[in-house]
Amino acid sequence: MTTDQTTTPVTGYRLLLPDQWAQVPLRHGTEEAVHRILEDAYTRIPKNAPPDKVSPYKRELARRFRRAVTQAQQTKGLDLYLPVKPMGGSDLSFSLGASILVSESLLPRRSGAEGTGEPTDAAVQLLSRDGAEGADLSSGEIDGALAVRHEYVAAANPDRSTELASRRVEYIVSVPGDPDRWFVAAFSTIGGGDPRDELSEALVEWFDAVMANLRWRQG
């Protein structure tokens, strides 16, 4: 189907996320966003909390959050999304057991017999740096654009501060009007401590729904 997307330049994207998730831009305005999110988290500390407990709590919260942001910046991503507000109950800490990292890649698509790109081939090329062996690959369309879904379980890697295995789902979407440009949204969760547990399954389904509602900004 041909739409205005093929002629109007894409200038951005939109993801619909719950209020509990915050966006951290990784190229411009990072420190301002980090400061704002941390200050908001500090306001949820009970007024009657023991003073000798508050400062260590703030330091640990800031350390964990800044480490996640720094690791994302090292991947040269565009935006990092993290759940930074409690979903309910009294837990005040950030839930850093899940994240969405948005980035982009440039890679010419291979041409088929009719001059159209082969999405699976492009995905394998894009993912070759991590290895696609044993991965679950499928292709489709999101907001009129060619998309590839890549799912796998990443082993724990203490050397990179990942103490637990994690469930990973990546969507690689061809940017409309620019066939060499690919939008990448990478979701990661440790679930309840097992990347194949019920919580992981539910979060993967949720991320699939988020990506189904991805929309481009144009003009």
Rank of each mutant, 00 (worst) to 15 (best):
R63Y: 13
T8A: 14
W216K: 13
F183G: 04
Q218W: 06
K53A: 09
P51E: 03
F207H: 01
W216V: 11
A185R: 07
S128L: 02
A123R: 01
L127F: 01
N213P: 12
Q23Y: 10
L16Y: 10
I142N: 05
A49P: 08
A41R: 13
A209L: 06
W21P: 01
L15C: 11
G219I: 09
R66F: 05
T3S: 15
I37A: 10
R109Y: 12
K76Y: 06
G140T: 02
P176C: 04
S90Q: 13
Y171E: 02
E201K: 11
D136Q: 14
A147I: 10
Q23P: 04
V184H: 03
E141T: 13
V34H: 14
K85L: 07
L106Q: 01
Y42G: 00
A185M: 04
L61H: 07
A62L: 08
P83V: 01
L61S: 05
R110I: 14
L214K: 10
S90T: 12
R66E: 00
Q71P: 05
L96F: 04
S99H: 02
P51L: 03
A202L: 08
E201C: 11
L106H: 01
R59S: 08
F207T: 00
P56E: 14
I100V: 02
R196W: 09
G219V: 14
V124F: 05
T162R: 15
E118F: 09
V69W: 06
R196C: 11
S111Q: 14
G219C: 13
G89P: 09
S103F: 03
D52K: 03
D180T: 10
A135M: 09
S103M: 12
A186M: 01
P46F: 04
G192K: 04
L214N: 06
K47W: 05
A209Q: 02
W206Q: 06
E114Y: 09
E60D: 06
G115C: 09
G97T: 00
V148R: 01
A135Y: 00
A202R: 08
L199D: 07
L96I: 04
L137V: 12
R149C: 13
E151D: 10
D194Q: 00
L214F: 08
L15T: 05
I190R: 07
D79S: 14
S166I: 03
L38Q: 13
E32S: 11
G191C: 03
A62G: 09
L137C: 03
D180E: 06
S90C: 11
A186H: 02
P179C: 02
T11G: 10
T2Q: 15
A185N: 04
D130S: 11
